[in-house]
Amino acid sequence: MQSVKLAASALAIAAVSASAAAARDNVQVAGSSTVLPYASIVAEAFGENFDFPTPVVESGGSSAGLKRFCEGVGENTIDIANASRAIRDGEIETCAANGVSDIIEVRIGYDGIVFASQQTGPEFTAFEPSDLYNALAEQVVVDGELVANPHNTWADFNADLPDVEIAAFIPGTKHGTREVFEEKVLLQGCEDTGAMEAMVAGGMSEDDAEDACMAVRTDGKSVDIDGDYTETLARIDSNPNGIGVFGLAFYENNTDKLKVATMSGVEPTTETIAEGEYPVSRPLFFYVKKAHIGVIPGLKEYAEFFVADEIAGPDGPLANYGLVSDPELADTQSKISNEETMGSNM
């Protein structure tokens, strides 16, 4: 019986000391797995150069991170949410309802989304949005008629492409990357091939037509990958005809296995993305809880350090890893030092 008492009191002591020690001195960050590598590079350099402890960075996805961010104000909530997309109005409302009204939005740079295949595979070297639309959409236009996608090989609709079976590995719907893929590639391809017009002519409203444009075929030629890019890479490795969707940074770290295709004739590089020539890119953000600045030591310093020229600038370690640095970085820097929240400049 004594050991039961002992165990019970140990549990109680553990719980009490835990809540007492919750006054934390490290910055906590959660969110997008795309931003995670950058955030961890910054956190590491931050820990080396400042007296503050190294911030804790977790992944989990943009939406999950913003959800935790909006849970409220206090030491039990995270200070910064990383996101590979802008915060949505609904999320701002949830935040406000929980007392998180002052949010500082920080754009750290851009990320390119590239289409790559096995280094030694068929010659997938140039794509147009219309090619990917024809290959992957649910409904396509053939001879002026809107039909369920009949294409089996890439050469079926574009003789310049290899005559191999279509096999594409695209990010699953929980990824922020999927949204960009749908909007910048499928929707564009839908307009280019005239499928959009055909849908509207067929009696669809414009919104419905857009939704239909972004529908991906479900006959197994396009596979949703819910895991990380490493999973996509493994699929490409085992399938010489496969085409995968990757982040630019991931591709640049695996150039020995992957061969990248141009989009609309533009090769994806940090330069072409910074200049806006390469069409498939997106901004990356993190969101800072203003109420925590001054409460959590090192929070503002971390945010400032993240966008400092020597970190996020064109020659910094983030750009080296594959981030496309933001030409308007100076604006972002002044925004953080002035602690401008999202409401104040709207």
């Binding site: 490290n26 995670l36 956190a43 820990g47 190294t54 804790v56 977790e58």
Partner: peptide
């Protein structure tokens, strides 16, 4: 319970 993800180097 959040023990996966980049965890501090401390």
């Amino acid at each position: 319970i959040g023990m996966v993800g980049y965890i501090a180097t401390n």
